[in-house]
């Protein structure tokens, strides 16, 4: 629901305002570098990875600055198992076989450059991804091909979801998260809006659209929600800020234990 309101306001302002945009030069002060953690554990093996990097200056290039030589492990707090991750490439720590179990609580520990970071995430119960289908919708005066996701929320409150969309195997960066605050115990229909006016992001007949549906920890829902609201560089928010993180010890980023289910559809 939040997305629908947000989207509608974007559409309206676009309709009213004839505006002009230009790239400008802004002098930004550099800040002390922070560690950035992106930790993922799913219920399927092969997805367990932790990316460790540092923040960069605005004027630097966009290549992530991977941090090598860290000690990274994930502990299953429910059964006591500890898995040490191995460094695959600079800043990328993985375990090829580790899969999480829904309902279990996981703790990520990282020791790097004399600092220690920890984060806890509970893997939620898996909720079935009912269907993925394509609709044609009007957006900014043209017809867009959009992916739609359906799932059925269970009776208890407290479920959060994230969808990740791929077009011909390439991940699109739109953040799509929702929770059952307004839709508890209902069949949910979620339209994955893509605002990008880049032709490469628009699905065409014959394209393959793939969507991962994740059941995420409510803490991680807040991370994605606040990242989308406050840190992606758009200025609708009066007070941009770092997203609400579950990492302790002074790093930014997140550690998410979530379930995953994938569906694919060909655009007609």
């Amino acid at each position: 629901m939040r997305n629908i309101i947000k989207i509608s306001l974007v559409l309206l302002s676009a309709a009213i305002m004839q505006s002009c945009t230009k790239v400008i030069d802004v002098k930004l002060r550099d800040a002390d570098k922070k560690y950035v953690v992106e930790g993922i554990l799913t219920d399927a093996s092969g997805n367990c990875r932790v990316l460790l990097s540092k923040t960069k200056n605005f004027s630097d290039n966009n290549e992530p600055l991977g941090v090598s030589g860290a000690v990274v492990s994930i502990k299953d707090k429910t059964n006591g198992t500890v898995i040490a991750l191995t460094e695959l490439s600079p800043g990328v720590y993985v375990d090829a076989s580790f899969a999480g179990i829904p309902g279990h609580s996981y703790e990520l520990s990282i020791a790097a450059g004399g600092a220690n970071f920890t984060a806890v995430s509970v893997m939620p119960q898996k909720i079935k991804f009912d269907s993925l289908y394509i609709t044609k919708d009007q957006l900014f005066g043209d017809t867009r091909t959009l992916a739609n996701v359906e799932f059925t929320d269970p009776p208890a409150f407290g479920n959060s979801y994230r969808a990740v969309q791929y077009l011909n195997g390439r991940e699109l960066t739109n953040i799509f998260v929702t929770n059952d605050d307004y839709t508890n115990d209902k069949k949910n229909y979620a339209k994955l809006f893509i605002f990008s006016d880049d032709d490469a992001d628009k699905a065409k007949p014959g394209d393959t659209v793939t969507v991962d549906m994740q059941c995420i920890d409510p803490v991680i829902y807040r991370y994605w929600y606040s990242l989308d609201q406050g840190a992606t560089g758009n200025s609708q928010s009066a007070a941009p800020a770092n997203p609400v993180s579950n990492i302790t010890g002074g790093a930014i980023g997140y550690f998410s234990a979530h379930t995953i289910e994938t569906k694919t559809v060909i655009v007609e």
Partner: peptide, 27 residues
């Protein structure tokens, strides 16, 4: 206004890092 103090990559996307509220000015 609040402008970023840096950037980093999450979710294969460049996002921004903030340190101070309203530390900059619009033109």
């Amino acid at each position: 206004i609040t402008f970023p103090a840096g950037k980093y990559t999450v979710n294969n996307q460049v996002v921004f890092y903030y340190t101070e509220r309203n530390g900059y000015r619009m033109p």
